[in-house]
């Protein structure tokens, strides 16, 4: 369960046929490495006495998929690529990669083309993703150069479909164009993601904090922001805050 996609180097099961077409989601490459974990119990200050200290495990998210994606996914991908070509935008420039995983279609979009792609997805009659269910920020601190991800889920009520757009930005330049002009519902969602992750949505009408107090320092849901709990005292014992305890991940 724990080994990632059965990629070579981390516990290959000899009984499994690892040729590409047998792997779930037909992942073309070995997936993208987001983190390398050493040891077993998350002990990183020399306290690992478990005997698993030398274990090295790379954590990989599902990688790009190859055609055919299956079901209506191909139709949506074809339509999107065709519509982008009509606008003289090479699909390869806008769509970084396409991932099919868990029966869900994800387009990784280059951030400079996000607004154009979203407008196309909303307006093209064959696509018609009318409803955006907001932005979810994810912070991958060890995914260098693309630490901050903004994930959009688009729903088409006309065609009863759902796709995901994923845009990434480096930590040093956390700018992603705002989708408020395309989906006004993203107003609060983008403010929330800015509040928690520090992603600056360029073009947002009023990008201010929304859930935290206005004078709050830092962006609390980033991985480098501590949980901020305090030790709890009982009779004769002190239990550390959840983020200070031993981790088993």
């Amino acid at each position: 369960m724990s080994d990632a996609n059965g990629t070579a180097g981390d516990g290959v099961n000899p009984e499994k046929d690892l040729s590409a077409e047998n792997l779930p989601g037909q992942r073309g490459d070995g997936g993208e490495e987001i983190r390398v974990q050493r040891g077993m119990f998350g002990a990183n200050n020399g306290g690992d006495t478990s005997g698993y200290g030398g274990l090295v495990r790379s954590v990989r998210l599902p990688g790009a998929s190859n055609r055919p994606y299956g079901g209506w996914f191909d139709e949506v991908a074809d339509e999107l690529e065709g519509a982008l070509e009509e606008q003289d935008l090479l699909p390869g420039n806008a769509i970084g990669k396409t991932v099919v995983d868990h029966d869900e279609l994800t387009f990784h979009i280059e951030r400079e083309h996000l607004v154009r792609v979203a407008t196309t997805l909303r307006d093209d009659p064959a696509l018609r993703f009318e409803l955006c269910t907001g932005v979810s920020g994810v912070h991958y601190p060890s995914d260098k150069g693309r630490e901050l991800h903004a994930v959009y889920h688009l729903r088409s009520i006309t065609h009863n479909r759902m796709i995901r757009l994923e845009v990434s930005a480096p930590d040093g330049d956390p700018h992603i164009p705002s989708l408020v002009s395309v989906y006004p519902t993203n107003d609060w969602h983008e403010r929330e993601t800015y509040d928690f992750f520090g992603i600056v949505f360029d073009g947002h009408p009023a990008l201010t904090r929304i859930l935290m107090p206005d004078d709050w320092q830092g962006h609390p849901q980033r991985k480098d922001y501590p949980l901020g709990g305090i030790p709890v005292e009982y009779k004769g014992a002190r239990i550390p805050a959840p983020d200070q305890r031993r981790s088993y991940s």
């Binding site: 005292e233 009982y234 009779k235 004769g236 014992a237 002190r238």
Partner: peptide, 11 residues
């Protein structure tokens, strides 16, 4: 007495 210095059941 501060809680941490109390004796007895852990609660």
């Amino acid at each position: 007495l501060p809680t941490i210095e109390m004796k007895g059941l852990l609660r």
